[in-house]
Design a protein around this nucleic acid. Sequence first.
DNA 1: GTACTTGTTGAACG
DNA 2: TCGTTCAACAAGTA
Length: 284
Amino acid sequence: MPELPEVETIVRDLNSRLVNKKIIGIKSSDKKIFQLTPAEVKQVVGKKIRAVRRRAKMIIIDLGGHNLIIHLKMTGQLVYAGKGALIAGGHPIAGQGKKLPNKFTRVIIKFNDDSALYFNDVRRFGWVKSAREDELRQLEERLGLEPLSRDFTLEFFKKFLSHKRKTTVKQALLDQKYVSGIGNIYADESLFASRIKPFRRAGSLEPEEIKKLWQAIPKILRLAIKRRGTSFSDYVDAQGQAGNFVKYLKVYGRAGEKCKVCGLPVKKIKLAGRGTHWCDRCQK
DNA sequence: GTACTTGTTGAACG
DNA sequence: TCGTTCAACAAGTA
């Protein structure tokens, strides 16, 4: 599942490849995923890509005054196929190999040099839309703070937790209205790193625990970005790189396996409808 | 056949 | 109004 570090990785790869390319066509047969009106398609075709950036888990393709916005949700995958380059990121799709397009391809964006960007999504949770500059600004205003930005201060984090005193700390971390971009994997990992049990009430955290958690979140996200994300597909780029943060996960997806620190089996329950992993000995 | 998986939103509740 | 909980979406994989 693409989370913030995966999206960041994709964005960096795409930014290095797509800048200055001109969009010559967009195709899709899936109206749920592809949300551009015919008029918007006309506005986008012929435009040159200025930059590719990330906001929360959205991928924003800046066309200068106009933007294409892509959200991969759980199972989305982006593959760029150009001359001698095949780069991809997001959810791996089993059995489809490197065939493009495949049966899960929902949107194809073609560029002036014969290369193309494929949006594949097994479960059709993701979407592609377009927004003018002012529409994008509106969209961004509704989102919480970026956990990797300078604004994510200890003061802000304390205030945020004080709003959520009665909620479990894990649920608080997943609430996108305050901090955007922390997903299930990184919520569990941040709580392990700061030695806090996920089902503690946010209001019960000691000041040092709040500080530890505040430090752990960007630290883990940055490390995951360095490792090119947790979930990368079997596609690799020209350098043969693939995401390998999965090796560094301490609790997520390791239910019943030994805690890497103390050896006790990692526990798992369902909290806020999400699989939640923790070590009963290491986390207080 | 069935349980399981999750990002995001919006509805419903007190 | 605010905080909080929870269902819904979707469909492949185990």
